[in-house]
């Protein structure tokens, strides 16, 4: 039971960004992907989620044996995939409560209605855990939220939707240390043998709080190095310059 990315090639506007990416994330593990700007990190997240601006030209992404290429964005999400956005969209006029409710409702069989009382109870518990004011339920999704509030909100959604595989795209960007800790606590609370994580980040800092089982370096659209969590520290110390100097070790 894994999220398996095999020889993935993807392009946008005729430019190839991912050039044969291989990665396997078994349930129960946290994998971190690090890499310099422009290496294809965010593209990978969007391709896994099924964003229409990207075309997969070769290779595959399968989730517990299901080929995602046959699934639309919403179908992938309902099948157990979650993308925590680097820049979560603001959706004016759609309240947090209604938005999450619609997302939960979409997971129920047709004709079945959400138990509103249980839903709100659960929502409030999780908001308390993440230190999100309950007033946020009536606010429009992400509208006027600070950077930290947006990221907490991403984790709240992840908690409410209980995905099997979580792809977190630079969740640490724009966060101060306190917000980072809260977000990491939320993620750690969700770690389980039944759930896999792909944590995309530019900096090692996040990995102090979310300890990965494996670390991969993405450059030029491919995984160029893999290792344990010590690889993150090495990158933090030496930077990504080794990529230029041809010290590439095969993945």
């Amino acid at each position: 039971m894994s999220l398996i990315i095999k020889n993935l090639h993807a392009e946008t506007d005729g430019t190839e960004i991912l050039k044969g990416l291989d990665l396997e994330i078994p349930r129960g593990e946290v994998h971190a992907i690090m890499g310099p700007n422009g290496s294809g990190k965010s593209t990978l997240a969007k391709v896994i989620a099924g964003h229409e601006d990207y075309t997969v030209t070769e290779g595959s992404v399968t989730m517990d044996g299901v080929d995602l290429s046959g699934l639309e964005v919403d179908e992938r999400a309902r099948a157990g995939l979650f993308l925590a956005f680097q820049y979560p969209a603001e959706v004016p006029g759609v309240s947090m409560a209604n938005f999450l409710r619609a997302a939960r409702q979409a997971r129920l069989p047709e004709g079945e209605e959400i138990d509103a009382v249980a839903y709100y109870k659960e929502l409030y518990e999780k908001m308390d855990l993440l230190g999100i004011d309950r007033k946020f339920t009536s606010r429009s999704v992400n509208e006027g939220f600070s950077g930290g509030e947006k990221k907490r909100n991403e984790v709240l959604q992840m908690m409410m939707l209980e995905p099997v595989y979580c792809v977190m795209d630079e969740t640490d960007s724009g966060l101060d240390i306190d917000a980072l800790k809260v977000v990491a606590e939320g993620v750690n609370a969700m770690r389980s043998p039944e759930r896999g994580f792909l944590v995309i980040t530019h900096y090692q800092r996040l990995l102090n709080y979310i300890e990965p089982d494996h670390v991969h370096v993405l450059a030029g659209g491919r995984i160029v190095r893999s290792g344990g969590k010590e690889l993150a520290h090495e990158l933090e110390a030496k930077g990504y310059d080794f990529l230029k100097e041809g010290e590439l070790a095969p993945a």
């Binding site: 639309e72 919403d74 999400a77 979650f82 209604n98 979409a106 429009s140």
Partner: peptide
């Protein structure tokens, strides 16, 4: 895309955004 990435079907997502407007 944001709404759909949460599992909300495209038609419902469009309705939510339009209603929100």
């Amino acid at each position: 895309f944001y709404l759909e990435a949460r599992g909300i079907p495209p038609q419902s997502a469009r309705q939510l955004v339009a209603q929100g407007f």
